[in-house]
């Protein structure tokens, strides 16, 4: 029988991971102190009572309100669809300019990447609030927000997909005397098309969920309705709206998952 190799004291008693764990616990505790977060407040009598009241009223949805929810929720879906579509189309040329196997100019690539990263850091709600201030309350502000959000997301996902294509067909096309556009349409597009559609559906899914929230700042869709119901403490109506949103989101997710499964 041969003896197992010896480990150092630190390794034997897992001192490193234990130290890290303790540091993280301390950091979380300090963060809680500074932000005055108090887990107990969640469980005190008053809060639980409030939850009980709201939840109790929501258990009796005002079903007669349902017909009035249909139109706003369709508006939300339409906003998401238009926003995703326009954003995704705008993202295509920008994705090409970021991909190192298409764009051979490093400076241009870097500049476009920085700009597109900046676009992605803009918070949706902030953008929506600004667009509402500029273009007024209504779905147009919401659509613009979703266009920019989809653009940032699709530009990144697409350029990453483009960079992972098999370079062989690109060589083959260049050999045949193809120009840049022909290399893209014959060698790159067929290789990334399925990924692109799959990412489009995923972004659409995210946008449907996001656009329900955008209504809060007046950017159209069912969120606006939800906001006003809650503001007037009309929880019976809010319950109907939330259930409707839930059903629509689930339907869209199921369809999107099915289609993306087919594309894989």
């Amino acid at each position: 029988m041969s003896e197992a190799p010896k480990r150092s004291f630190v390794a034997r008693f897992h001192l490193k991971p234990i130290t890290w764990f303790l540091i993280i616990v301390v950091v979380i505790y300090l963060a809680g102190q500074l932000t005055e977060a108090n887990l107990l407040a969640f469980f005190n009598g008053h809060a639980i009572q409030q939850f009980g009241v709201i939840f109790g009223r929501m258990l009796h949805p005002e079903w007669s309100y349902f017909p009035q929810v249909i139109e706003p929720i369709l508006e939300t879906v339409r906003m998401a669809l238009v926003g995703t579509l326009v954003g995704s189309i705008l993202a295509i040329p920008v994705a090409m300019l970021q991909a190192s196997n298409v764009d051979k100019i490093p400076v241009l690539r870097t500049v476009v990447r920085i700009l597109s990263n900046l676009v992605r850091t803009l918070p949706d709600l902030l953008m929506a609030a600004i667009f509402v201030a500029v273009f007024g309350i209504g779905p147009f502000a919401g659509v613009l927000t979703l266009v920019i959000f989809s653009f940032g997301q699709m530009a990144k996902l697409s350029y990453e997909a483009i960079e992972t294509v098999d370079p062989g067909p690109i060589d083959a096309l260049e050999t045949a005397g193809a120009n840049k556009v022909q290399v893209i349409s014959f060698a790159i597009v067929p290789q990334v098309l399925n990924t692109f559609i799959s990412n489009f559906l995923y972004t659409f899914e995210v946008n449907v969920r996001a656009s329900t929230v955008l209504g809060w700042v007046g950017a159209g869709g069912v969120g606006q309705l939800l906001d006003s119901s809650l503001r007037f403490t009309n929880y019976e109506r809010a319950a109907v709206i939330i259930l409707a949103i839930l059903v629509v989101v689930i339907i869209i997710e199921v369809i999107s998952n099915y289609l993306r499964g087919k594309l894989a």
């Binding site: 098999d166 045949a176 014959f186 067929p190």
Partner: peptide, 22 residues
Amino acid sequence: FQNFNLVKRSSVRRNVLSGRVG
């Protein structure tokens, strides 16, 4: 090429015609 370098998702027809793009 060693690895043929066809566009695998495209038809034989489109692959062959792509040789004519020049």
